[in-house]
Nucleic acid binder design. Sequence first.
DNA 1: TTTCTTTGCTAACGAACGTTAGGATTAGTA
DNA 2: TACTAATCCTAACGTTCGTTAGCAAAGAAA
Lengths: 196, 196
Amino acid sequence: METAQLSRKDQIDQTATALFRTRGFAATSMRELAAALGMEAGSIYSHIRSKEELLHRICFRLADEFFAGFDEASADDALPAAPRLRRAVESHVRVLTTDVAASAVFLHEWRHLSEPARTEFLALRERYETGFRELIAEGAAAGELYAPDPAFAALTLLASLNWLPSWYRPGGSLTPPDIAHRLANQLLFGLEVRGN
Amino acid sequence: METAQLSRKDQIDQTATALFRTRGFAATSMRELAAALGMEAGSIYSHIRSKEELLHRICFRLADEFFAGFDEASADDALPAAPRLRRAVESHVRVLTTDVAASAVFLHEWRHLSEPARTEFLALRERYETGFRELIAEGAAAGELYAPDPAFAALTLLASLNWLPSWYRPGGSLTPPDIAHRLANQLLFGLEVRGN
DNA sequence: TTTCTTTGCTAACGAACGTTAGGATTAGTA
DNA sequence: TACTAATCCTAACGTTCGTTAGCAAAGAAA
């Protein structure tokens, strides 16, 4: 019976992600990573160019996924801003829960990227936040959302979501869609104007 | 004119805090820290026992401050849960903004503590979160707050607050009390039952 | 069969790491 | 004056770091 059949390189990426998440990038040595893979440190370099390349790949792959999810969620021009924001929140949670370890690395370890990757990464993150900010601002302008300061609201909203990898454990009592729904509710019912 | 007049040890703590915050504990070397203080690496050990002692002091001092603030904010038994929660939120923000660098270290670098300090630290954090959870549950039971899942609500609330050190810069347009007020508003008006 | 790719090893490189020993200087105190 | 505490230095320790060179085995492709 054939299982996953990950290429060795993908196995390395995956194990590195788990280690970077729990011990941090700087505190994870190549020898540790090699041991977790059942090989020697030097051997890893048959598959990758450097330790930082591992981090780079993780961070930018996640960035891609966040963007793809957001673009799809917020694309529908016919929809009002509020439900598009809800969909964007749910997409964000989906990415976070689908790959918790990589998300944690994405959120916390990016600063160990060296230039110019680091600046590049921050620009991406800024662009992503702007997407949320504009969605909230649009909803506020239309009277759908209560957000006197959209930038502030966007920051707080993403903050709530991004804390998720620090407590979410796959296989808990809440499924990812549950979590997405509840988070969206808690955050949006605090934002949405209540009709009565 | 006499200024601060920090003891050398306090200067070391302070500089270490700033470095641990921006570069991370593991990625900060004692030689880097020494250079930032205008001295040699070996000289630091006239003042401290080890690198980890620095991290330990930062983390546990902050824990003390968070607890002291929370206890004071939530002590008044005559007050309903909702305003006590508001005061606790404001206290939390006050600690975060008073010492942003130390807060960031407290939030992100604790995992580089070795045992048993690490377990001890996590127990403290758990106890702190429980304080918020119980306050929210009390408010929910009294009908003051809308929180079908107090644990979930507490997590989300603290998440929003704890993201603050990653964007707050002292001297910005918002003063710490402003920020505390706005955050409490955005979070509590999402939690509080609206009377009409 | 030959060739190429994948995968891994051992051994080592130079650099950086946290930390220590031992001595020197200075300022305040008795 | 003698003593003490605070402060910092140089030089080095043993260890670990990321990475490389050179070689070898094994399977797929030609």
